[in-house]
């Protein structure tokens, strides 16, 4: 018989002050405290960490790839949101 699966957690690490937490990988743990320990022992062995978040993988809500066009296509045409859309003479200098 297969052993009961231990919950999966996603690990996010802030590498340095001023940076945001970034996904580092996943680990298995039975509870939040052990998940933090495992994240520390697995993903910060080379001084990579200042702060750790762990989130149960099953608690993450993800967008569906099927909705990709609906979700992300409409913004592609809104080029006026980017600075390069606007023409400013060179002699004005950096703006």
């Amino acid at each position: 018989m297969s052993e009961a699966a231990m919950p999966l957690w996603e690990v996010f690490i802030r590498a340095r002050n001023g940076l945001s937490h970034k996904h580092a990988g996943s680990i298995h743990a039975t509870d939040a405290e052990m998940a933090l320990h495992a994240a520390r022992d697995v993903y910060t062995r080379r001084g990579e960490g200042q702060s750790i978040w762990v989130v149960r993988s099953s608690d993450i809500v993800a967008s569906d790839p099927v909705d990709k066009d609906m979700m992300f296509e409409p913004t592609a045409s809104k080029i006026y949101r980017h600075p390069t859309f606007y023409e400013i003479p060179d002699d004005v200098g950096n703006m």
Binding site: A4, A5, G25, S26, R45
Partner: peptide, 22 residues
């Protein structure tokens, strides 16, 4: 650790670490 990273990568394809261990 590398085994662990790789099991995690495989788990994203819908197979559990327990199944792979078995």
């Amino acid at each position: 650790g590398h085994g662990l990273y790789l099991y995690s990568a495989a788990e994203t394809l819908g197979v559990s670490r327990e199944e792979m261990t078995e």
